[in-house]
Write a protein that binds this DNA or RNA. Sequence first.
DNA 1: GCCCGAACTGTACAGACTGCCCAGTGATTT
DNA 2: AAATCACTGGGCAGTCTGTACAGTTCGGGC
Lengths: 155, 155
Amino acid sequence: MIDDLDARLIGLLNAEPRIGVLECSRRLGVARGTVQARLDRLQERGVIRGFGPEVDPAALGYQVTAFITLEIRQVGGHDPVAARLAAIPEVIEAHTITGGGDMLCRIVGRGNQDLQRVIDLIVDVEGVQRTSTVIALATPVPQRTLPLVRAAARQ
Amino acid sequence: MIDDLDARLIGLLNAEPRIGVLECSRRLGVARGTVQARLDRLQERGVIRGFGPEVDPAALGYQVTAFITLEIRQVGGHDPVAARLAAIPEVIEAHTITGGGDMLCRIVGRGNQDLQRVIDLIVDVEGVQRTSTVIALATPVPQRTLPLVRAAARQ
DNA sequence: GCCCGAACTGTACAGACTGCCCAGTGATTT
DNA sequence: AAATCACTGGGCAGTCTGTACAGTTCGGGC
């Protein structure tokens, strides 16, 4: 699926995204064409989705992150709700889930008070029956995939 | 905090991460130096964290995503648990939270069976008393920050 | 009304990188 | 033994980056 060189390449790009293909080849001790081919293949296979800018909501003023679980009225289903959620900028992601709730969303707000505004927006969505929110106090493990890439390379 | 040009710049980079500063300046109709200065400032202020490769766990074979809530023994606190969680590659992120649980983690597995293995790893962590897992079935709103950037720019 | 700082424009130059191509090599498969 | 595949090392033209600088515009303060 993925080999050691791929993993080292991803790790390198993760550590220093600004460097180019040529610099990668030097650091990894392989030919430039190889790095180029690997990168192309990784993107083609979808392993690397892209190199979009990572935006930090906190730096934009949205300093509170929370997770909100939704219960949704059976009739109508998830789709209309998801569409309405997608229209709320503060909804960073939304999943349908198993278990007690029906959907789980990550949301942000400018503060606890602003978070209430966002929650109200969600509660107002047609089809949402009940919500339950937990606030993220700290993030000891920030989002990451590098360890996973390394693990995948060892297979 | 952030203005319309910043937002358009981020949007552009999001849509086509491969393009360079020069191309951005052409598309946005401003001088190259301006784009360069804006980008530098956005990164300096931390709004743009970086341009690391976005890895898709599913493409690596980790096709199941789940959220697991942990209850942690009071004595000892979160930190040792967080450290042990960080050592598990399948733990994509971990937050301490308010409410019923003590921590919320996003985890992945190669399948439902493999997910059980990951959960077992977590349950085995010293200090973890109880866990509760929900599986993400679908992701109608994939992780995004662009709408937030646009909203921030309108302030 | 005037001045100032900040930001933007337009331009320039050297150095470096990218995309592309090709021949040769070694390892693995057929 | 022939074929296939990935990697190496090299070359070339075109383009971009980093940096610098002078001129212009714009909003606010005096």
